[in-house]
Amino acid sequence: MNIFRLLGDLAHLASIFILVHKMHTTRSCRGISFKTQALYVVVFVTRYIDLFYSWISLYNFVMKIFFISSSCYILYLMKYRFRPTHDPTLDTFKVEYLAGPCFALALIFNYHFDFTEIMWTFSIYLEAVAIFPQLFMMQRTGEAETITTHYLAALGIYRALYIPNWIYRYYTEGTVDPIAIVAGIVQTGLYLDFFYVYFTKVLQGQKFELPA
C-alpha cells in the first residue's frame, strides 16, 4: 500500500458515495447510464472471484465486498426506486460492442489460461471501457448535472492515481503488471476530454455543457 493507491481507492469510494447521494437527494437517476453501472457490477463480480479462495488483507476484503454490494445497490436504485427517472432512449450504447472484444482480448492476452485468471483479465479490460455508455449519453444530451460531473471526476481520478502507484511499486518492489497498467492508462485516457471541461468549467462554477 502506498499513498497513490490509498488516495486512488478513496477517490473510488468517494465516487460511489457521490453517486448514491445524488440519487437520494434529487430522487432521480437522470443523466446516469444504467449500462455503465451494470458493467461495473460485471467488472466487480468477475474480478473478485478470488474472494472465495484468496485472503489478501482485511482492507482488501472489505473493499471488495463494498464495491460488489454498492454497485448492485446502485442498479437496484436505478431499476426499481427511481426507475421512472431513467430514460432508456438516451442510454443506447451497445454494451456487447464492449463486452465481446474485451472477452476476446482476455482469451488472447492473459497471464494464465484458466477460468479465474481470464475472468480477472476480462474485468480489467471491461473496466477500462465501461464508462463509454455514460460518456456517450452525455455527448448526446450535451450536458450534465454538476453532481454527476463530480462523480465522474472522482471515478477518473481513482484510475489516474493508480498510475503513479504502479510507478512507485516498480521502483520499490520491482513489480510490473502490464495488463493492469496498459488498461489503466487507456481507462484514464478516456477521461482526458472530460477532465478538461471539468477543470476549466465546472470547477470555475460553470455548468457542464458540451459545444453543440
Binding site: R47, S54, H112
Partner: peptide, 10 residues
C-alpha cells in the same frame, strides 16, 4: 507481477 492470484489491487 503476473503471478496467479497475486492480484492485490482493487
Amino acid at each position: 507481477g503476473g503471478k496467479q492470484s497475486g492480484h492485490d489491487e482493487l
